[in-house]
Simulated assay, not measured.
Amino acid sequence: MKFVLSVPESLDPAAAAPLLCAGITTYAPLRKWGAGPGRTVAVVGLGGLGHMAVKIAHALGAEVTVLSQSLKKQEDGLRLGADHYFATSDPTTFERLAGTFDLVVNTVSAPIDVDAHLGLLAVDGTLVNVGAPAEPLSLNVFSLIGGRRSYAGSMIGGIATTQEMLDFCAEHGIGAEVEVIPADRINEAYERVLASDVRYRFVIDASTFA
């Protein structure tokens, strides 16, 4: 049987394409690990993946917290649907939020302190990695067994889940926050990515290719 994705007409074309990468990458683990009413979800990082995780977790009905290195994107995070926003650079954050979350979705591709983030989980909570750091990550097994916690990974989803995600985003008016650029600004865009100066996805206007 052949499956073909159908993009709902209500989705903005410029935002629909990023949904097929950032959308499914975050939707799949949120659905798999039960984000919804009565559940507490933390999103680590408010970038290309993180901003979609916040939107989707909020639409699913979860209580959403953003954990970012600083508070510079706090206004954006709350606008996108977060209920709370904390800076991980503040050492009191991990003490204050210990044992709080049912699910922590790590969207960053930089190394994190896995043990510290596992400590944020409630009993039977799960830390899911969707970001892909180049360096190996390590953990102390006692961070897992102390609260029956789990550490998992997720990449994308199958055709059926991707279609479910597209329909869900169309129903709830969710799209990626994008900046459309011409092809001759690709190098500039890359420099801005390196500087974390993206709100929150670049989309290249295909009509500008020579």
Rank of each mutant, 00 (worst) to 15 (best):
G125Q: 07
T126Y: 03
L78Q: 05
Q69C: 00
K32N: 09
A116T: 05
I24D: 12
I204R: 02
G153I: 14
P29I: 14
C21A: 15
T88L: 00
P18D: 13
R192P: 01
T25Q: 10
A16E: 10
D115I: 03
D12T: 13
A98M: 07
D76T: 07
T162N: 12
I181V: 13
A17G: 15
A152N: 10
S10A: 08
G38N: 11
A152R: 14
L11Q: 11
V203I: 13
D184V: 10
I24C: 13
S150G: 09
E135F: 01
P182M: 04
H84Q: 14
I186E: 01
V193H: 02
G175D: 08
A110S: 05
T100W: 08
V203E: 10
W33S: 07
Q74Y: 00
D115K: 02
T93S: 04
A16D: 08
P182V: 07
A53P: 04
H51T: 08
H117V: 06
L60P: 02
T162I: 14
E135M: 07
D83Q: 15
V4G: 14
F94I: 01
E95M: 06
S207M: 14
K55G: 02
Y200F: 12
I56C: 04
P18V: 15
L103E: 02
R79E: 13
G36W: 13
I204P: 03
I181S: 06
T93A: 02
V198F: 05
T161L: 07
D102T: 12
